[in-house]
Amino acid sequence: MAEFFQQSFHAHFNFWIYVILMMIGLWALIAKNNLIKKLIGMSIFQTAIILFYVSLGVKAGATIPILDPYGNKEQAAAYAEESDPAKGKNEKKGTEEKGDSSYVGKKSPNPDIMANPLPHVLMLTAIVVGVATLGVALSIAQMIFKEFGSLEEDEILEIVKGGNVDD
C-alpha cells in the first residue's frame, strides 16, 4: 500500500488533484440544491478536465511553446546544436542585424525543450465552450427564476408538483 502510494501519488500528483477537483464538481452538480451552485460545480468539473489535459503536455524542464532564440538561451543553444555546428556561430552574429530571417534555413529545435502545444490548443477550445455553456445555463436560470420566483431546486419541484402557484 505504501509503495503504491509512493509510486502513484508522487509521480501523478496533478492527476490525483484533477480527480479530486472533478469529483468535487460532480458532487456539487448532483447534490447541491441551488441552481447557481450547480453551475459553479459544473464549471469546476470542466476546469478539472482542462487541468488533466494541460498536465498531459507538461515536460520537466521545458519552456513555453513559443520560439524565441534571442531571449531564451536554452532554445538558442538547441537551435545551434541542431543546425550545422560550424555555421551556428556565424548565424548568431547575423541575427543581430537581420532580425527575423535568422530563423530561416535553420533546422528545427529539439522537441524536448518545449511544452507540448497540442493540449493547449485543445483546451483553448474547451475553455471557450465552457463559457458558452455557462452563459446559456445562466440565462435559463434567470428564466426559471422569473417563472418560479426561486432558484432552489426543492422549492421549484414542489411548485411543479403541487401546481399551486399561478403565473
Partner: peptide
C-alpha cells in the same frame, strides 16, 4: 505549467467574464 496561452484565456474568460456573468445573474 508552461501553458501561457491557456493561462491568458483563463484569466480573461474564466476569471473575468464567467465571474461577471455569474454576478449579473445573482444580481437579477
Amino acid at each position: 505549467m508552461g501553458a501561457v496561452d491557456v493561462a491568458f484565456t483563463e484569466a480573461a474568460v474564466g476569471a473575468g467574464i464567467s465571474a461577471v456573468l455569474m454576478i449579473a445573474t445573482v444580481f437579477n
